[in-house]
Nucleic acid binder design. Structure first.
Length: 130
RNA sequence: CCAGUCGGCCGGGCAGCCGCGCUUCACCAAUGCCGAAAGGCGGUGAGGUGAGGAAAGUCCGGGCUCCACGGAAACACGGUGCCGGAUAACAUCCGGCGGGGGCGACCCUAGGGAAAGUGCCACAGAAAGCAGACCGCCCCGCUUUUUCCACCGCUCGUCGAGCGGCCGAAAUGGCGGGGUAAGGGUGAAAGGGUGGGGUAAGAGCCCACCGCGCCUCUGGCAACAGAGGCGGCACGGUAAACCCCACCGGGAGCAAGACCGAAUAGGGAUGACGAGGGACGUGCGAAAGCGCGUCUACAGCCGGUUUCUGGGCCAGUCAUCCGGGUGGGUUGCGUGAGGCGGUGUGCAAGCAUCGUCCCAGAUGAAUGGCUGCCACGUUCCGGUGCUUGCAUCGGAGCCAUACAGAACCCGGCUUACAGGCCGACUGGCUCU
């Protein structure tokens, strides 16, 4: 049990701009307070990686920091266990991340990460390029 | 007690669980792993430490770094602008002065030069810069009407009355010429203000006081202040309009810069060939010019411009050799105009000195998540006390704080900010 937990704990981070752009090509899932983008790296033996995107229009530096920290904590405590090995996840925060209770935020994240993509959505994901 | 002014300070606290960055120590793991290299790195345990008064805006001033390296002068451009002081420096700070506001404590103030020159002063108004007469006031000339007085002529006739003419005076209206800046009206501003004399009416035309200008004296380091005399007023405002004067300033910034260093394109040195300009020689040609040979970095370029001076660099092709830039890594990177406390000195900003402390270093960017208690705030309910309302006690709910996140570092300025604390002072009321 503890062994399994240790293995799951190693969630990597996405750091460079090309990595984020790559994940953008994958499928996207809409949550209530965030947008989740997922890409299968086709490397099942490697750990999953996560990245956070908080744009400037959603608040000043203090608020952006808090949004990122809350999401990070949510991934660390529980939501990260649901991530599949070899996949990259990018969480694009919305302003509601600041207001929603933490337990609710965690539950939403876990649900969206586990959820299978809805079949109708898979076609139109290609439209967001720009 | 109420109202207000100024200055300083804080800007949640404690505890628990799970985590993060940097760092110290111990043990385990390796002649191991990642990477081309440079370089980086794991696990467990214990400890230390970890955002602000504005970290913000990036508006000034510096340190530091580079721009190949220096010097001198002028111009241009930019900034500053009462005086003295503080400071590494400043547009900052302190102390004064002048002007303005407030009963007062106190607050505001880019505050040099307008007789060096240029420009502008809209609208309104008659007139806005060596000013100007619209209304009004006054004088003169001509003239209308009315009244009064004197005279002349005619008629009636006793004194006298009537009619006509004419001189003068007054009032009134008109036209023309002139005086006048007191009053009205316009304007941000109308060529000093108030009072008196004076005058046809007025006017610094004259006088007194105030203002202004100049001179002298006294006080002050100075800005400036005070006193006395003189000048009858000439000199409007605007310099955050150009400008003048004095002083200061090279530019760009830690994505600076240094070091290590792949692929690919490009770079440098040496040698050979070769030559944009010039000089000399020479061929062709009437000449202009076009060639050839030899010599020469002379032309040109080198931080906004120009001048001077030292110094440096320099086309293309081929061969050989050698290194620098980008991605990446390391560094720059925290002992500093440092914090706290004391003493001396100065009105103060500050300065000197002693003791003590080491106090963030991330780079997709570390301080977070959850819980409990307390403080504070606020809302509601109930009890008690007295003057509407306030004070106090008990209970419950809410928010669990405002503004806001270091990014090379300091000194300032500006802007944002829930709530609270302390001190000094001013005005008013009550009591003693």
């Amino acid at each position: 049990m503890t062994n399994e937990k240790n293995a799951k704990k190693a969630v990597g981070r996405l750091k460079s701009r090309p990595q984020f752009l790559a994940v953008r090509e994958g499928e996207s899932r809409r949550g209530r307070t965030f947008l989740l983008e997922v890409l299968d790296r086709k490397a099942p033996e490697e750990a999953p990686r996560v990245g956070f995107t908080v744009t400037k229009k959603h608040g000043n530096a203090v608020e952006r920091n808090r949004m990122r920290r809350r999401l990070k904590e949510a991934v660390r405590q529980s939501a990260g266990f649901a991530m599949k090995a070899g996949h990259d996840y990018v969480i694009v925060a919305r302003r509601e991340v600041l207001k929603t209770p933490f337990a609710e935020l965690t539950a939403q994240l876990a649900e969206r990460i586990e959820a299978r993509p809805k079949p109708k959505r898979s076609e139109e994901t290609r439209s967001r390029k720009a």
